[in-house]
Design a protein around this nucleic acid. Structure first.
Lengths: 225, 225
DNA sequence: CGAACCTTTGATCATACTCAAATGCTGTGG
DNA sequence: CCACAGCATTTGAGTATGATCAAAGGTTCG
């Protein structure tokens, strides 16, 4: 497993702690520093002029906070990043971090890997919001977190700690909280997953994949089952 | 106006011509080269496992083809890029291009600017698909193209050449072609825009902004007007 | 213990989809 | 230059997915 740098030799860094809902990076402001999430979850969100909030991504331990800054320089970030749970972040000077990444081969390919994963995840999510049913979006969402966490050894068997509220999930998938609740309940009743004590268990991973990739026309069939 | 590099000194480049629907970069394949779109339009698209195609972005003259490759290295692009009209592209070796960009201050800040614009546009689009009505999405879409083209002096007064089919617009905004047609017709009847001879004219820019940023609850009022 | 928030459930509603058919455009070949 | 084939657009009727609104439980935490 490739990990983002918690410590990089010869690079000054500072560690900060955050509580739930505390801002890490503010929308539309430039930032001179980039972070590495060491523990806890965070989320990247964009507030539209209409006032509605969209959650672009959930960030897990090991993820870079404001990864886009590497490519954007001093331009303002078009989204904010906020702690979802208690969290701690290791901050670096973006410029110095970037130079170091470029200089050192291993760091460089690791960072390209993270970038690549980030872009894949994000473009898939966007496509799902545009073209998939609520059930498929939720299946993909739950799986994505599962796979990402498993990759970091942050799962226990088929379960993982599920921290976001359904309201946040809704804002991420372009749904309403009420409908997220309904849809999750349906998945639970079908024995595909289980949520208890903040823990989500993936009971039927194969079926979840099926649902996430189903054509719209098959969705109805799947849902009523 | 900052322009992407058509020619960069001391950097080998080749120019290729494309016809409509010809692939420039193929989804899930790595690419060693990055392009600059010199004329014509292209679009970045992702095909889901369900078979549905989502259009992530439309690329206009001056845009970089596969801009993400600068940050992703040799990892496969999670989307493809295809010519929308007749188009020509100036190709560079990604690695060499990247190094040159880093070395030269002006090129560097120009590239960061393009990145920044690209990320802003994309994150806004994603949020709109998740949270805005069809009318708002279309208003934002039409405006975005207008602003981007105007910035490159590719508009004539309040009009610009509108090349995508409604089917492509639908795939970009997460709608169906039939509904795009209906919604555009409504906007035309309200005298906000006009489409004739492949030319889109923005008749009431202020109102378009209003519609793009309206809260969902105001949408109904706006629509029936 | 109470307040605030999150989740669940139900009833009702509307936005946007589906399916279908008619019409209009474009480019191609005879 | 016309006829045709293949798309793209338009329009309509009917429908369903997911939204809205509301209220009742559950949690969590101070």
């Amino acid at each position: 497993m490739k990990t983002a740098p918690d410590r990089i030799p010869h690079l000054r860094a500072s560690v900060s702690a955050y509580e739930p809902n505390q801002a890490m990076l503010v929308q539309d402001q430039p930032s001179e520093r980039i972070g590495s999430l060491r523990s806890g979850w965070a989320f990247a969100h964009k507030t539209l002029q209409s006032g509605r909030r969209h959650i672009l991504a959930f960030l897990l331990p090991g993820d870079l906070i404001g990864i886009d800054l590497l490519a954007m320089g001093r331009n303002p970030l078009p989204y904010g990043i906020t702690a979802l749970s208690d969290a701690s972040v290791c901050w670096f000077d973006t410029e110095a971090f970037h130079e170091l990444v470029l200089a050192e081969g291993a760091q460089r390919s690791a960072t390209q890997y993270w970038m690549s994963l980030y872009i894949s995840t994000f473009s898939l999510r966007t496509a799902m919001i545009g073209h998939a049913t609520a059930t498929a979006r939720l299946a993909e969402f739950v799986l994505e977190l599962f796979v990402r966490l498993r990759h970091r050894n942050l799962t226990r068997g088929d379960g993982y700690e599920f921290l976001p509220t359904q309201s946040q999930v809704a804002d991420c998938l372009g749904l309403t909280p009420a409908y997220v609740s309904m849809t999750l309940t349906r998945l639970r009743k079908r024995g595909i997953l289980e949520i208890r004590d903040r823990t989500l268990r993936v009971l039927d991973e194969r079926e979840l994949h099926r649902i996430a990739n189903a054509k719209d026309s098959e969705a109805a069939t799947l849902d009523t089952k």
